[in-house]
Amino acid sequence: MDRIDVHETPLDVAAEYAALQKANTADGACAMFVGSVRDFNAGSAVGGLALEHYPGMTEKSLRAIVADARGRWPLGRVNLVHRVGPMQVNEEIVFVGVTSPHRQAAFAACQYIMDRLKTEAPFWKCETVRRACGAEEERWVEARASDQAELEKWA
């Protein structure tokens, strides 16, 4: 019932949604989140980014996050798909889709999964930033206190 996948190819958001809904008559609610590469972060123009992960460990972490969400809410299907590798601005990075008999559970579980993913999943993000002079450089993206604060709301 869960689809957890980490890969380098572009995400197909329509196909992910269709998979959540296909022959699913038990769930009346579907909540989704799609994250994409922004063109601006931490005061700099962003030209793209690359995500790295530790195969095996990453998927194990994502499975644990989904299992915990299932323990909190009545969920039908969960699709958690995350890209790694190089990406350009506006390309999708992550898809989280959750179905449930009721909308409140679907909304909450979707947000919870993203909040956990942002703070706990072993991904490393390196942005290509453009300086005012036109030069490009790479920088590793640090964890944000605001992401941790969002996670603490679930405690």
Rank of each mutant, 00 (worst) to 15 (best):
L20E: 10
E136R: 06
G85F: 00
P122D: 04
G134V: 10
Y17I: 15
Q104I: 12
A31R: 11
V89I: 07
A132I: 09
V81H: 04
G35P: 08
I65Y: 04
I4H: 09
E16W: 02
E92S: 15
S36D: 10
P101G: 08
V84Y: 00
Q111S: 15
I113G: 12
V89R: 01
V98M: 02
R77A: 07
V94N: 06
S61C: 12
A45N: 06
M114S: 03
D5A: 09
N24K: 04
V94H: 02
I93Q: 13
K22G: 12
L51E: 04
Q104R: 14
G134K: 10
L49F: 04
D68I: 12
C126L: 02
F123P: 05
C30V: 15
T25H: 14
R3I: 10
I113Y: 08
N41M: 01
G71A: 11
R77I: 11
T99L: 07
R77Q: 09
M32R: 01
D12K: 00
A67T: 03
D68Y: 12
P74G: 13
R83V: 03
F123E: 00
C110N: 10
G43N: 07
I65M: 00
L62N: 03
P74M: 09
I93F: 09
F95S: 07
C110M: 10
Y17A: 13
Y112M: 01
V98A: 06
R70K: 03
M114L: 14
V13P: 15
E92A: 15
Q111D: 15
T25R: 06
L75P: 14
G97H: 05
A64S: 09
F33T: 15
F40Q: 14
E120G: 11
R116D: 08
R131H: 15
A15Y: 10
F40H: 12
G85M: 05
D39F: 00
G28E: 01
C126F: 02
G76N: 05
G85D: 01
A14S: 13
G43C: 14
S44R: 13
Q88C: 05
F40N: 15
